[in-house]
Each structure stands twice: as structure tokens, then as C-alpha cells.
């Protein structure tokens, strides 16, 4: 990889080119073009059901787990279309980690939760150190340091989610995907995770789906607004599309699209 020395000119790390995703015959999102810049936090917002999670899962091929889900178009990562037949999805996921909506620790100890991912990624360094530094980065070290051998499920919901973030950090991915990571959490935990994200921004590219517009405003550099419209062929189903993509400031202060304006002012959603 060639390091880009000019800081101001961030390079595209992940790009969607004319991506449409379907579940069986139902098309969930259509014709998305989107560039994610390295080192940015990008928010995906929009009314529920417009396909935010679907797009996010497409970015590291988690959609492979859904039996009838299919994708058209290309998703370029590091110059490679990750939907190329020759690509190994496991390899993709090692470099693009994911944090889910529901906290999902493994039913193992806190320590093992983190060590597991590192080990399968071939980590050979000092495991204790990695566990500590990952937990620190995820801002959950102080809560965990005395109970590393307790089950991951002994933590509160917010702590579990930060443990999951730590677990993802531990595999040192280039990009971290987060699907509404705070939707199951209380406001204090939410703030803590937002702080965590600010910390992580120094080293990682983050793409986050959020329902909470304040959160998008607080944490992200760029914001993509997704919307859904009735099928023109009209059997009542809705198809999602990318309505507007710009810097967070612009999206919230002077959106170009009327629907964006309506959405951020709470007219629908």
C-alpha cells in the first residue's frame, strides 16, 4: 500500500459503483454510487426500511449469510471488487470488521472474546497487551480490568457493546462498520461509545448506520441520506436509494434535496 502523505487529500478507501441489492425478487436498494474516504467517519441515515443495514452488510459481504440475498454492481476496496468470484469473503471481513446492532459477545470470558478474533487472524504478539489496549481504545478497560475471566455476558448492555467494539479493534481492521451500535443502549452508554468513535477515528475508517440524527451530527464527517420510494412498476413495495451524500455540515445545514430537508427536520422517518 502506498501511504498518501498529503493529509488534506484523503483517498477513497471503499467505493460503491452502481450497486443494487435484492432479497430474492424483492429489490431492497437500487443504483447506489458512494465513495468512503479513508480516515473519515461516515454516517448512513434515513427512514427505517430504506436499506441502510443492507448496504452496510454489503460492504464486508455479511449479506452472504442471508440465503437469497444478491448484489449487482461493484464494491471496490483497495482496488479490488470484493464481489469478484476470486475473492475470499473471510479475507474481506478480516480487513473490514463489523459491530452489530445487538451487542453479541461470545459466551466466553471477556479476555477470550478479544483473544479469539486476534488468534484467528494470526496474531503472534503479546496477547495480554493486545487485550488491554483494545479494551482501552474501546473505553471499557476500567470496567473490565478486574473481571477479564468473567463471561462477556456479565457486563451491562453498553459495556457489552464496547466489548464488541474492542473485539473488532483487536483484529486491526482498516474499516469498522457499525450498524446502529447504540440503538439498544441508554444515553450515557451512547455518549461513551461516541467518545470511543472519536478516539478510533485517528486510526480507522468508520462507517456507521444510525437512526439518531443528533448522533450523525456529533460524530460524523460525511453523511449519506438514504430514502425509499414506491416501485414505479408499483406492486406496493418500496425500493431504497441514495438521496444525497455530502459533508455532514452541508446535509444538516443546507441540503440540496427537499426530502433530505424534510427528513432532518423530522417530517417523516
Amino acid at each position: 500500500m502506498i501511504k498518501n502523505t498529503k493529509k488534506s487529500q484523503k483517498k477513497n478507501i471503499l467505493s460503491l459503483e452502481d450497486v443494487s441489492i435484492s432479497y430474492g425478487t424483492f429489490e431492497a436498494v437500487r443504483n447506489v454510487f458512494l465513495n468512503f474516504k479513508a480516515g473519515d467517519i461516515t454516517s448512513l441515515i434515513g427512514p427505517s426500511g430504506c436499506g441502510k443495514s443492507t448496504v452496510l452488510r454489503a460492504l464486508n459481504r455479511m449479506n452472504d449469510l442471508i440465503p437469497n440475498c444478491s448484489l449487482k454492481g461493484t464494491v471496490l476496496f483497495d482496488g479490488t471488487n470484493i464481489y469478484d468470484k476470486r475473492v475470499d469473503p473471510v479475507e474481506v471481513r478480516r480487513r473490514i470488521g463489523m459491530v452489530f446492532q445487538q451487542p453479541n459477545p461470545f459466551p466466553k470470558s471477556i479476555y477470550e472474546n478479544i483473544a479469539f478474533g486476534a488468534r484467528i487472524n494470526g496474531f503472534t504478539g503479546d496477547m495480554d497487551e493486545l487485550v488491554e489496549s483494545s479494551l482501552r481504545k474501546a473505553a471499557v478497560w476500567s470496567e473490565c480490568k478486574d473481571k477479564l475471566n468473567d463471561s462477556g455476558y456479565s457486563l451491562s448492555g453498553g459495556q457489552q457493546q464496547r466489548l464488541c467494539i474492542a473485539r473488532t479493534i483487536a483484529i486491526e481492521p482498516e474499516i469498522i462498520l457499525m450498524d446502529e451500535p447504540c440503538s439498544a443502549l441508554d444515553p450515557i452508554s451512547t455518549l461513551k461509545i461516541e467518545e470511543t468513535m472519536h478516539e478510533l477515528k485517528k486510526n480507522y475508517t468508520i462507517i456507521i448506520v444510525t437512526h439518531n440524527m443528533q448522533q450523525a451530527l456529533r460524530v460524523s464527517d460525511m453523511t449519506a441520506f438514504f430514502n425509499a420510494v414506491e416501485y414505479e412498476d408499483g406492486d406496493g413495495g418500496k425500493v431504497g436509494y441514495l438521496a444525497e451524500f455530502d459533508s455532514t455540515k452541508k446535509i444538516f445545514n443546507s441540503p440540496k434535496e427537499k426530502t433530505t430537508q424534510e427528513y432532518i427536520s423530522g417530517k417523516f422517518g
Partner: peptide, 14 residues
């Protein structure tokens, strides 16, 4: 070779 590509001989894949 692109590191994202599927490698048959990788012990994991075998």
C-alpha cells in the same frame, strides 16, 4: 497476488 483473493492452499481453506 491480491491478498483479498481466495487462496486454495491456505490451511484455513483446506
Amino acid at each position: 497476488m491480491n491478498s483479498l483473493y481466495y487462496q486454495k492452499k491456505l490451511s484455513r481453506n483446506v
